[in-house]
């Protein structure tokens, strides 16, 4: 274990990690009445940017209009604070387990540029999909499942089912 810890390859037992994550999720519902999320913070960033460039466009838009309200900055949302915590927590964990390093992780069969291009495309689609489904793997699927939301189970099956098929389409990128 010492060697693994030094080389940054030590990970929690997956069931142990799952119980930790589950307890954090449960605590989130117990304290705040809501679940965890991630994509919502990115949405707030986009809303804030558009609002800063053209407040008129933000208020008039059918979509941004839902998220801008008088007297409150668009970045002042629960999820933005939560994501600040996520970044800090992941950083601390990476520090503890010796994983802090600037790098592009990719299969040896593909170039860095190809990896980054696919990462950009993947992020773009995830951005679009998370807005349609009103949440991502955390906010819609995981948090939804924790409180038996039908939407959570539908979104989870759609994400993982589709990803399973398309992972094989893009197999060369991974293995």
């Amino acid at each position: 274990m010492d060697n693994k810890l030094k080389s940054g390859k030590f990970y929690l037992n997956p069931y142990m990690g799952g119980v930790c994550l589950g307890l954090v999720l449960m605590a989130t519902f117990y304290f705040t009445g809501r679940g965890l999320g991630a994509s919502g913070a990115v949405k707030s960033t986009v809303v804030a940017a558009v609002n800063a460039v053209s407040p008129e466009h933000a208020v008039k838009s059918h979509y941004y209009g839902k998220f801008v309200s008088e007297g409150q900055h668009p970045m002042n949302t629960w999820l933005v604070f939560e994501v600040i915590g996520v970044l800090a927590g992941a950083f601390l964990s990476g520090l503890f387990f010796n994983r802090l390093k600037f790098k592009v992780e990719h299969s040896p069969k593909i170039t860095i540029n190809r990896r980054l291009l696919f990462a950009l495309g993947g992020g773009l689609l995830f951005g679009i999909g998370s807005q349609l489904a009103k949440g991502c793997t955390s906010g819609a699927a995981l948090s939804g499942m924790a409180v038996l939301s039908l939407a959570g189970f539908i979104t989870m099956m759609a994400i993982f089912g589709t990803a399973f098929i398309f992972a094989w389409v893009f197999k060369k990128n991974w293995i």
Partner: peptide
């Protein structure tokens, strides 16, 4: 929208290898 959004996210997942939380 849960199904269509999930499918779009699934394709993004297989291309990018992350979901929003894990990418952070």
């Amino acid at each position: 929208s849960a199904i269509v959004g999930g499918i779009v996210m699934g394709i993004g997942f297989s291309m990018g290898g992350y979901c929003p939380g894990t990418s952070f």
